[in-house]
């Protein structure tokens, strides 16, 4: 019996009766196995403890960011605020006049882009990966985008399922290879499958990343006036671009 499978199943409560018997026998008759097993049990406890510390820090950071009390101004003065407001308005007018075309499209892209989650074949960790399709989506979930693209390409060749184009494009966007992403998303638009609307949103983002504002704005206007995927986000993004 494979030792790693036995240990994995023990720690993740998946031991079969047969495996439980095998484990008990090893613990009884193999002192070296028993010693390593004790180390592994302690390691598991230590890792959970470290995980708790990270989680605690994550909650504290969240509270500090989201619910940080506003610092009080010791000397609020109308004049001070009025001057500040004038300066801000003045700068904005100046900026809108001279710098509008340099709006940082990279920043807007970064704020709005997140590789679309895997809803085709969600992978349960520890349940095993049996098919090339599962392997490709697992790589995508683990952000191994280059490897995922390779897998998706092979699967698309075999099955011609259009969603592979959509996920390939997402992987390319995550890798900052925007031209390939645009070409795939434009191709994907012809299929009008379940991912069609999502694909339009990602295409608008890809155009933005390529600094093709005209095409991006056109698409975002269409999305924001409809009631489909990310229509509200499209409106917000349009305002930010303008």
């Amino acid at each position: 019996m494979d030792r790693d499978i036995l240990i994995h199943n023990y720690f993740h409560q998946k031991l079969s009766d047969e495996e439980q018997v095998a484990l008990n026998e090893l613990l009884e008759n193999d002192p070296e196995f028993k010693a390593t097993f004790e180390l592994e049990k302690d390691l598991n406890t230590v890792l959970i403890d470290t995980g708790k510390e990270h989680l605690k820090q994550q909650f504290v950071d969240f509270e500090n960011q989201e619910y940080e009390p506003q610092s009080e101004t010791s000397f609020p003065s109308f004049l001070k605020y009025a001057i500040a407001a004038c300066v801000i308005i003045g700068l904005s007018v100046f900026a809108s006049k001279y710098f509008i075309d340099t709006t940082n499209t990279d920043d807007l892209f970064a704020e709005n882009f997140a590789a679309y989650r895997n809803i085709v074949l969600p992978i349960e960790r520890g349940e095993g990966i049996d098919t090339p399709q599962e392997e490709a989506f697992f790589k995508y979930e683990m952000k191994e985008y280059t490897a995922a693209i390779k897998g998706f390409e092979a699967e698309f060749e075999k099955t011609k399922e259009p969603y592979y184009l959509f996920y390939m494009a997402n992987a390319y966007l995550a890798l900052n290879e925007t031209k390939q992403a645009i070409s795939l998303l434009e191709k994907h638009q012809n299929f009008k499958d379940d991912f069609y609307e999502k694909s339009r949103w990602y295409l608008a983002l890809a155009y933005l990343k390529e600094k093709n504002k005209e095409k991006s704005v056109m698409l975002l206007e269409e999305i924001s006036t409809g009631d489909g995927y990310n229509n509200k986000e499209a409106g917000t993004l349009l305002n930010a671009i303008r």
């Binding site: 994995h8 890792l47 697992f138 790589k139």
Partner: peptide
Amino acid sequence: ILELFYLNGLRIKEIMIAAN
């Protein structure tokens, strides 16, 4: 590798893919 196996519950094959 130890975290992936003992904490996150990835199997050997999954670690192979996840950690290249």
